[in-house]
C-alpha cells in the first residue's frame, strides 16, 4: 500500500491535497500533519513512500526541515509545495535534497504527475521551471556552481565565506566598499543565494575554504 505523508499549516490546503491524492490513489494511506515536528514524528513512527510538504510552516521552516529530514532519512523522497514563485526557491530546495518542487498554484493534474514521477524514483520540476533553468543557466549543470564566478568574484566569495566583512575585504584588496558590495550582490545572484551563511555552507561543503 502506498503511504503518503502531507504537511501544511493550512487546513484548506491539507483538505485539497488529500482529496486530489485520494482520487489519484484511492487505496493509499494518507496522513496529515501541520508542522515540521509532525513530519519528524511520523517519519520516525513508520516508513513513507513520499512526503509532500509546504515550505513555510510555523516553527522550523520547511527548508530547515528538509535539510534535517534528508540527514536522518536520506532515501525518503520529499516533494516541496510552496506559494513562492518557483524561480525563487526551486533550485535551493532541490539542492537541499528535495525530490521535487511545485508551486501551490499548479493544477491538480500537475501535482499527481509530480507524485507519480517521484514515486518512480525520479525528480520533478515543472515544465515552466525547466524552461527557466534552461534560460538562466549558461553552464552545464554538471559543473559546480562556483565555477561560473569570475576570478575576482570567486576571491571575494571565499573571503566572505571565511567570515570577512565588506570593510575588511575592501581594505585587503584596496578597493572601495561599494565595489565589494557590487561584486557580492552579483556573486550571490549567480550562486542563487541570499545570505553569507549560505556561501559559507557551500564553501565548506565543496571544500573551498
Amino acid at each position: 500500500m502506498l503511504r503518503i505523508l502531507i504537511a501544511d499549516d493550512h487546513d484548506l490546503i491539507l483538505k485539497g491535497l488529500k482529496q486530489i491524492l485520494k482520487e489519484a490513489y484511492p487505496h493509499a494511506l494518507i496522513e496529515e500533519v501541520k508542522n515540521a515536528e509532525g513530519v519528524f514524528k511520523k517519519a520516525i513512527q513508520q516508513e513513507w513512500d513520499i512526503v509532500i510538504s509546504d515550505i513555510s510552516m510555523p516553527g522550523r521552516g520547511g527548508l530547515d526541515m528538509l535539510h534535517d529530514l534528508k540527514e536522518s532519512f536520506p532515501k525518503l523522497p520529499v516533494l516541496i509545495l510552496s506559494v513562492h514563485p518557483e524561480e525563487q526557491y526551486a533550485m535551493r530546495v532541490l539542492r537541499a535534497g528535495a525530490a521535487g518542487y511545485l508551486s501551490k498554484d499548479s493544477a491538480n493534474e500537475e501535482l499527481v504527475k509530480a507524485v507519480q514521477r517521484i514515486l518512480l524514483g525520479r525528480k520533478y520540476i515543472s515544465p515552466y521551471m525547466a524552461e527557466k533553468l534552461a534560460e538562466q543557466i549558461d553552464v552545464p549543470l554538471s559543473k559546480p556552481l562556483h565555477t561560473i564566478l569570475s576570478d575576482k568574484e570567486f576571491h571575494i566569495f571565499k573571503l566572505i565565506a571565511e567570515g570577512k566583512s565588506i570593510v575588511e575585504i575592501a581594505a585587503m584588496l584596496s578597493v572601495s566598499q561599494t565595489t565589494i558590495s557590487t561584486h557580492k550582490a552579483k556573486l550571490l545572484s549567480k550562486m542563487h543565494m541570499r545570505a553569507n551563511a549560505e556561501l559559507t555552507r557551500y564553501a565548506l561543503e565543496n571544500k573551498l575554504i
Partner: peptide
C-alpha cells in the same frame, strides 16, 4: 484560482 484551495473548500 488555486485548484488545491478550491478542492479543499469543496471537501471541507
Amino acid at each position: 484560482d488555486h485548484a488545491i484551495v478550491r478542492i479543499g473548500f469543496r471537501q471541507l
